[in-house]
Design a binder for these strands. Structure first.
Length: 728
DNA sequence: ACGCTTTTTC
């Protein structure tokens, strides 16, 4: 650019005045586009010296440049040189105001114009549509006296941008009927409309038209057709279009890269990326984003650094994807570094960057810092709000989350899901249902994710009635074949003890993931179907590619423990790490301790607990003590009880069991002394609790202290029933 | 003047 300027300065304009102006104009255009305003003002000064700065073409380009750089003094200076606003100046001002988001200003300028041409109309209509002001845009669209390809295309693409794909297609058909010839850009927009409308047949007939009119070898039309094919899973078609292209640009390559990601083949995508003839910030950001979204956060961050090393300047997308990756890695320090960087280049307040920064700080437990970012975003969209709400939820700050949630101007599905998930994570099931009902009343349709959370809440309070009600809603919405929903249903029915329904849902699932298998194996084991649970585990190993995880092993050990298959259990336990590469956790050791104790192998259990690599859980000792009770072994019981009293100064389980052991052995004095010890140490026996659900209301019954408000009536009815049973 | 590829939250 600098050399271009030098060459220009060396030319004597007297020789070819027209060429000189043309060169100046194209230079100004480039400077303006690339933001090289210093170059621009140097050229401006030179043009003044040459006495041609007021040439119409040059003055317009100078105006555009100063408008783009928001230099108001210089802009005013140029405007003064025009004698009153002419049509072209007006159009420039409208375009600039649209760029600045000042749509009211643009409209006012437009309305005040004495003469408007098609450029004025197109600029205003597309500007309004770009900023989501569809109704106003359509008002002008219906009243324009001009009928040409630009205005129609502006209307079509704008409608597509606003999600009104059907309206866009209608405008396209009307355009064809009135004899206006579509151009490449029209087709690009219409193909996108077909993809988003979800009608492959419509898209295919548009493709026919494209071929008929001869646009099938156009670059951007082919690019949009690739995207269209991928969206409908037509991989072969996408590849065919790509292969038949005469020239491919970075967009075509990025689209085909995305195809492999869509197919779940990240490796092939990376191969395409590495072999692309040309890359731009978008290709980089596509690859970074895809790594980040598929859970390869480290790789995403690595690629970001690689990109910077290669001399590319990351754009907003790269930054937001990278920050999001850092958030999932909880890499606060690296995140802060990037935060500093985005602040320096002035995109800190961008909604994408801002939302991921909020997420970063909240995932690292710094909700206050997240809130500072949140407050700094001037034009918050719903994603910013959602990030902040889920950030608070994540950190257990439910009051803050709810307060913010209630203030969201336009909630979307994810807003509701964040709030519901927040209450679920913090075990406030009642609030889960409360917000869910609120959601239904607001008219928002629950999604797969919503059901997965609410069903999980049903499972946690074992409310089969609520669960069945939800199951009905799921079927009504037609989302009963979703893996997440079905897994939640399987788990809910199992946790509620309705193992038959649980199995029915599980068996008809089209695809099962790791969590689905875990839910069913665990469900069977915990409902007393130990053999079936083990059979299912073996079936999983044989028929699916799912590798057993910690939780599945826990269920397997639990099952072995409950059907007395001690040796099988021990075999699984020993092969966990050796064969499957799953390191047993403390809970697995506890489970084995329980298994040995239950079967009466008390000495073995005791040895197992004392030699395990973790600090034994209280439950491990409690299990042994319980085993001592069933198999009446007072000596080990006393040793164990001592251990327990050391470990569980505050937890009452050990003492309760110990007193029960003494009781079963008839040593009442010891029972009394243990109870006394408990009282002295301030240990309270945690009461048992059971419940029934009657007409959507939960009735709780405690073994002590609290009594049901209608306790007297309930016992009355119970007596009545008892007497009737005796009569029969 | 109108377009294609990428970005944030559950």
């Amino acid at each position: 650019m600098r050399s271009a300027l030098k060459t220009l300065f060396a030319i004597n304009p007297g020789n070819s005045f027209k060429a000189y102006i043309e060169t100046s104009v194209s230079l100004l255009k480039d400077f303006s586009k690339q933001g090289l305003f210093t170059h621009g003002s140097v050229l401006h000064a030179h043009l003044i010296k040459m006495g041609i700065s007021s040439e119409n073409y040059i003055a317009i380009k100078l105006l555009i440049m100063y408008l783009n750089s928001r230099k108001s003094a210089e802009t005013d200076q140029i405007l003064k040189e025009f004698n009153g606003f002419n049509l072209v100046v007006h159009n420039c001002l409208i375009a600039a105001n649209v760029d600045w988001g000042n749509l009211d200003g643009a409209r006012q300028l437009f309305d005040e114009m004495p003469h408007k041409n098609e450029v004025s109309w197109t600029a205003l209509i597309s500007g309004l549509l770009k900023h989501g002001r569809v109704e106003e845009a359509m008002w002008y669209f219906e009243r324009t006296p001009f009928q040409n390809v630009f205005i129609s295309t502006a209307g079509i693409s704008g409608l597509v941008k606003n999600g009104l794909t059907f309206e866009a297609i209608k405008v396209f058909l009307k355009m064809l009927q009135s004899g206006v010839m579509p151009n490449d850009i029209t087709f690009t927009s219409v193909v996108r409309a077909c993809a988003e409308f979800g009608d492959i047949g419509l898209g295919m007939s548009v493709l026919g038209l494209i071929v008929k009119v001869g646009f099938e070898h156009n670059l951007s039309v082919s690019n949009s057709l690739i995207t269209f094919s991928i969206r409908f899973g037509e991989i072969d078609l996408a590849r065919r279009i790509f292969n038949q292209m005469e020239n491919r640009d970075v967009v075509s390559w990025t689209a085909i890269l995305d195809m492999y990601v869509e197919m779940g083949d990240l490796r092939e995508a990376r191969r395409v990326f590495d072999e692309m003839p040309e890359r731009n910030e978008v290709s980089w950001s596509a690859m970074i984003a895809r790594y980040s979204q598929s859970g390869h956060a480290e790789e995403a961050v690595k690629l970001f650094h690689h990109m910077v090393q290669d001399g590319f300047r990351p754009n907003t997308s790269c930054f937001s994807s990278t920050i999001s990756a850092l958030a999932s890695l909880e890499a606060l320090q690296s995140g802060k570094n990037i935060h500093g960087h985005v602040a320096k280049i002035g995109i800190e307040r961008d909604v994408f960057v801002g939302s991921s920064l909020i997420d970063l700080y909240c995932k690292c437990g710094k909700t206050e810092d997240g809130h500072v970012v949140f407050d700094s975003i001037l034009e918050k969209n719903v994603v910013c709000w959602n990030s902040m709400v889920s950030g608070y939820s994540l950190n257990g700050q439910l009051e803050e989350a709810k307060e913010l949630f209630d203030q969201i101007p336009k909630k979307n599905n994810i807003s509701w899901n964040s709030m519901i998930a927040g209450y679920l994570e913090n075990e406030q099931s009642d609030k889960v249902f409360e917000v869910f009902n609120e959601m239904l009343l607001s008219g928002e349709t629950p999604s797969e994710s919503t059901f997965s959370s609410v069903l999980c809440a049903c499972a946690s309070i074992a409310s089969v009635q609520k669960g069945k009600n939800l199951h009905g809603k799921v079927i009504k919405l037609g989302i009963q074949y979703d893996t997440f929903v079905d897994t939640a249903l399987t788990d809910m029915y199992a946790k509620c003890g309705d193992i038959e329904s649980s199995k029915r849902v599980f068996n008809r699932m089209p695809t099962k993931n790791e969590i689905s298998w875990t839910a069913m194996i665990q469900g069977l084991a915990e409902n007393g179907f130990a053999e079936e649970s083990l059979t299912l585990f073996e079936e999983m190993e044989k028929t699916s590619s799912v590798a057993p995880n910690e939780l599945i092993f826990l269920a397997v050990l639990f099952a072995c423990s409950h059907c007395g298959l001690v040796d099988k259990g021990l075999w699984y336990f020993n092969s966990m790490e050796k064969v499957y590469g799953v390191r047993p956790m403390n809970r697995h050791y506890t489970c084995v301790a329980d298994m040995l104790s239950r079967s009466g192998r008390l000495l073995e259990a005791e040895k197992f607990i004392t030699t395990m690599p973790y600090q034994p859980e209280i439950n491990a000792w409690a299990a042994l003590l319980s085993g001592c009770k069933t198999h009446t072994n007072e000596r080990i019981a006393e040793r164990t009880a001592r251990k327990l009293s050391e470990l569980s100064e505050k937890k009452s389980g050990g003492y309760v069991m110990m007193s029960n052991i003494y009781a079963s052995a008839g040593r009442w004095i010891d029972v009394l002394s243990t109870r006394k010890l408990m009282k002295e140490k301030g240990v309270k026996k945690s009461g048992g609790c059971s419940w029934v659900e009657v007409r959507n209301h939960l009735h709780l019954f405690y073994s002590q202290d609290e009594t049901h408000s209608e306790s007297a009536d309930i016992y009355g009815i119970l007596e009545l029933l008892k007497s009737e049973m005796l009569i029969l």
